[in-house]
Every structure is written in C-alpha cells, then in structure tokens.
Design a protein around this nucleic acid. Structure first.
Lengths: 166, 166
DNA sequence: TATTGTTATACTCTATAACTATA
DNA sequence: TATAGTTATAGAGTATAACAATA
C-alpha cells in the first residue's frame, strides 16, 4: 500500500512527508537498546514532536504552547498549577507559556473566586479558532506518524499507552 | 491486582516505586489532548526517563550516556556519525558524550581503517562491566513502567512502537 | 567538492530558589 | 505554616556555523 494518499488529511506540505523511516542505520535495530520500550518511546516522541512542530509552524505555534491552548479550550477550567502537573511543566514554565498566549489574545487568566491565589485559564474566541486550526495540524501529524498501523492497531497503541501513563 | 510486587525486579529503591500514577488531575484525562498518541508518548517518555535516570544515578550515568555506552557494547562498531543518526543526536552532542565516556575509560575511539575520517566506537572491559550493571537498572525501570501491562501486552506495545518508529 | 569529526557559540528548555499574596 | 503564582537565574540540552583532515 502506497503511503502517498493521506486519508484524514487536511493539510500536507510536501516537506512533511515521512514515507518510510530509515536512516541507513538499520543494522542497529537488532541491538538490545533498540528493543527497549523506553528507547522506542523516546524515538517516537522526537519524531512526532518534530513533525507536529513543522505542521504547526505556519500558525506560529509549537507543541508545548499548543498543549496549553488545548487545555484552556477543553472546558475543564484548569488552574496554572493543575495544568503544570498534567503537562509535566514547571510552574515557572507555565507562567512563561501563559504570558505569551495571553499577550497573543488567545487565552485569559481569571481569578478563582474560591481561592484568589490561583488563576483559571480559559480560551478566548480567537483562541478557540486558533485551536481548531491547530488541532487539524496535530491530527494530520498523528495520521502520518501512525500511517504504518491499521485503525485497530492505532486504538490498541492508544489504549496500551493510556494504561502505562495514567 | 495490586501493583505492589515487582516481578522481574533486580534493584528497587523505595523512592523509585511508582505504584499508581495519579496527579489528582484525572479530570483532564477525557480531554482531546489527553487522547492524542503524541501526548501519551511524550508523557511516557518523561516518566520513563525520570525513573531510569533515578535508577542509574548511583552508577553516575544518565539515559543518554547509557544509550551511547549500549551502542558501543553492541558489537556493531558504530561510527560517531552513525550513532548520532540512530540516537537522534547532533554530531557535536556525540562529541561531548563520547569525550566524557572516553575520559572515564569505558569506551574508545578507534580509527576506521577504511575511512580515516571516521572513528569507530568500542567499549573497554570496564565499559562492558558498567553496561551490564546499568542494563539491570534500565530493565528494572522498564519493568516498573510497564507493570500495568500483561506480558502479552508488553510485547504488543513493543511491536507497535517498532512499526511506527522504523 | 563533499563528508567526518571537532570547536565555539548561541539558543531553548528545564530546574532552583526567593519573593508576594493569599489561605 | 503552607500554597499559587511570579521572578530571576543558572544549568542542561539542543542547534548552528566554521574549521581541519580526509575522501
């Protein structure tokens, strides 16, 4: 099956095609390291991150600010601390990320009436529009990353990852 | 099934137990972001990396130098460039990592007789001993990371990751 | 002319500690 | 006394460009 016709695709720059992954170092694939799940997830994450950043670049977004925006758009009204816990981000990193997104007008800090120390993150209308566009890109990135798997295998992978990660 | 008794365990410091992962932000698990494979692999990688680094710390190793050492011990005689390609490392990062490991006496740079520009990495006897100890730790880390999965599921996960990563 | 390894450099990401305002 | 957010700062990790030796 030729990997040339993306299915769920909305946007697909030519440069982002990763038809088959092979660095010419295939002789290393049988080493013990190359069989470790930790190594494989690290590699998947590097590849996936790079592709997603590339597809998000025309929106002036990267994966991390996208994740913050996504949480602000989720309807769960996270505080900055909750968001940091969930995304494995330092409180100071959260501040920097939220600063930039707030300046850009895509999200807001709102005081939590029940605890005035904490600030609730919510998206603006512009933020929801940006998120909609960005989510298209990340879904495209995921489709490309998982193109070697059947739909059933994709669900399997997702379920297995959810089990080890939560 | 209680997740309290590690099975394949060799070494298990009390501080490294991660019996159940829950940040108290479980209400975010139903958001779209939390279902993305890219997000899940990123999270798995952060968690796995932290645990592996912790278990390797008494050997004065971290995940990245461990990976370099593992390749030097693999019998595949990689050049620095090949190693960088395979491990997603910049040539300059490879230099820094190899420098430290060579000073430590666990690996060597040897000139490639067929191309005197490139340098082949091989482990010393001390390097192989260090690797043996370190591999115990990383296997323990993997066992803890995957403790929520059955053996069959672990193999499934590995096979799925291999498909998307190579 | 291109490539391997090296060096120097800058940039980004991440981690730490101290401060403020609230609790 | 403890916690949420902020600030400043430093450290680690990553990326870039230029160079020497070799192909």
């Amino acid at each position: 099956m030729p990997p040339s016709s993306p299915t769920t695709s909305a946007v697909a720059p030519a440069s982002a095609q990763q038809d088959r992954v092979d660095d010419g170092v295939g002789r290393f694939q049988q080493t013990p390291l190359a069989q470790e799940v930790a190594f494989l997830t690290a590699r998947a994450r590097v590849r996936g991150n790079a592709l997603a950043n590339e597809l998000l670049s025309d929106l002036d977004l990267k994966v991390r600010p996208f994740a913050v925006l996504a949480m602000a758009c989720s309807g769960t009204n996270p505080s900055q601390r909750e968001l940091g816990d969930f995304l494995d981000l330092d409180p100071s990193q959260v501040v920097a990320l939220v600063d930039r997104l707030e300046e850009r007008g895509v999200l807001q800090r709102e005081p939590d009436p029940r605890d005035r120390r904490s600030k609730i993150l919510t998206a603006t209308e512009a933020g929801r529009e940006l998120y909609a566009q960005a989510a298209e890109r990340t879904h495209e990135a995921e489709a490309q990353t998982l193109q070697g798997l059947t739909p059933a295998e994709r669900d399997q992978l997702r379920e297995l990852l959810i089990k080890i990660v939560y």
